[in-house]
Design a binder for these strands. Structure first.
Lengths: 308, 308
DNA sequence: TTGAAAGCGGTACCAT
DNA sequence: ATGGTACCGCTTTCAA
């Protein structure tokens, strides 16, 4: 039945017939018990409700499906215990590997794991990982902002504990520093919209004549957009805004948000492929895959006159 | 170990010690093999990338987690084959039950299932299900629209194959019919934003002086909002808009969208509870749980002067 | 109370 | 080429 060696055609036929008639399909659990590995993989993410993660998750799932693997998933809420909990039950279910999008602050969770783990949207030097080129993203954002003639730029620095957020920040800072524009750096501690609304108000009070905002992600950019509109500014005439991520929501805003796109779906697929490769080759060598970002020009930035 | 009968304290201690020392945790696969059921449940949804579903999924997960069940999920893309495929592997993995948010057009998939299935966000008379009171939602939307003085209302009728969309439509139609306002019904075939953009353009061409739109869901409402803004209408002064669902995105729009809220997260939890109950009681009796909807007043509707 | 054994449904190996 | 058997790790039952 597993196509090993030679089989009489008759028996083959008989067996296939039986399979059809009985509507037989093998019991994965028994298989998994004997082989000590299932066709399941574990997926850990902070919160599926946050619009950035479904894209990644979908990429992982689609790629895994091609290879007949299924996904057990868990929302960790960045809670160390939940994370540990899920990791345990993943192992109890003989998952073949884990893809984690959680903050690897809690790296300790992943030490001495008998199964491969790849990090997604997280940089890591101790583990294989897949992420976007945030630093370059920051550079691009700053470039585009300057090129399009903003002169008093606000750079919003995302949560310090998120490496990816810091990369973006550093990239943008690098470009702004070596340019001739004025700029103002605003530190923030989360990506929550509620918080971002407050910062946005603050921002326009403290730096009333800013004419360009580089936000730490699209949610924060949305809050800035709101506040700009609310205070009667014209977009993009009075103020330009660039976000980061390109979540689906961003193109649905009015005006649609210009942003730096992370290829989230592709990142998910790459992570899945990487995990699969690691499993196949049993080489647990650390491999970090960085995907390129791109500027998505929509309507919160002005036309680049020089290039028209 | 399973607290059955009496055990010497000494042996108990010894065992517990060993458990700790060896960092032992039971193999769920072996358990599942013997018991013929795992602690896994299968979750089927059209597309996790669509912002409405993560809310439901999160509800299901959180409730299941409380009872130590884990989730295997699959996106079906409303594709009969994928759906069938996932259902099969769910069974191969001894899931204890399935929660499905797919279109039960393909109901045939669910006949003669040896394990319980509950439908979520779908009405069904053949199976247990959890859904929101769409009809009442439609009524509320129409009421609010009229109460707030729209006189030439457009009612957008969602995809015919979605029972939930039809319920909303019927509810709104019922109220509009028995009122004195003029209204125009526009039929649509999907919830995609791209399509909705076209319909929105159409709408304002064909019915230029409409002053109130009841959209089939929040995505469609967003497209209408866009087009209204683009054509220079003032919201809510010139035109009011009410959506349906209350996805997170809706409060992030500018102006924030007034909408009929489905308690998605709670629906997810209820579905999980229902499934768990069915499993516990082995009664496979059909139970349909309907949850109430509510009007979320934001800024695409005017103040209700009469009630101030 | 505790230990031994059978069986869940597959896979892999060995002998026929 | 095919049939038999041990084993994966746990639960349950039965005997000691």
């Amino acid at each position: 039945m597993n196509e090993t060696g030679y089989v009489h055609e008759d028996t083959k036929k008989a067996v296939n017939l039986a399979i059809e008639q009985l509507n037989y399909s093998p019991n994965e659990v028994a298989r998994s018990l004997y082989k000590r590995k299932s066709r399941l993989i574990g997926l850990l993410l902070p919160d599926i409700t946050n619009p950035f993660f479904p894209l990644l998750a979908r990429g992982v799932e689609d790629e895994m499906r091609l290879h007949d693997f299924r996904i057990i998933f868990g929302n960790t809420d960045e809670d160390h215990e939940k994370e540990q909990d899920y990791i345990q039950t993943f192992q109890q279910n003989n998952v073949i590997g884990i893809i984690s999008m959680t903050n690897n602050l809690s790296k300790s969770n992943y030490n001495d794991m008998p199964i491969p783990v790849v990090f997604l949207d997280r940089t890591s030097s101790n583990h294989p990982s897949v992420y976007a080129d945030g630093k370059e993203g920051g550079r691009i954002a700053a470039h585009e902002m300057i090129k399009r003639n903003s002169k008093r730029i606000t750079l919003i620095k995302g949560p310090a504990h998120l490496q990816t957020a810091q990369d973006r920040f550093k990239g943008a800072l690098e470009v702004l520093s070596s340019s001739n524009v004025d700029f103002y750096v605003m530190s923030t501690t989360s990506f929550s919209f509620k918080d971002a609304e407050k910062w946005a108000r603050d921002l326009f009070e403290k730096y009333e004549d800013t004419d360009g905002v580089i936000a730490s992600n699209d949610i924060v950019a949305t809050a800035v957009l709101h506040e700009a509109l609310r205070t009667g500014r014209k977009i993009p005439e009075d103020i330009q805004i660039i976000g980061f991520d390109d979540i689906p929501h961003s193109s649905l805003l009015f005006p649609p948000l210009s942003t730096i796109r992370q290829p989230a779906y592709e990142m998910g697929r790459e992570a899945a492929k990487l995990l699969l490769n690691i499993i196949k080759n049993k080489k647990l060598d650390i491999k970090n895959i960085q995907l390129p970002v791109s500027f998505i020009e929509r309507s919160t930035t002005r036309k680049d006159e020089a290039n028209v």
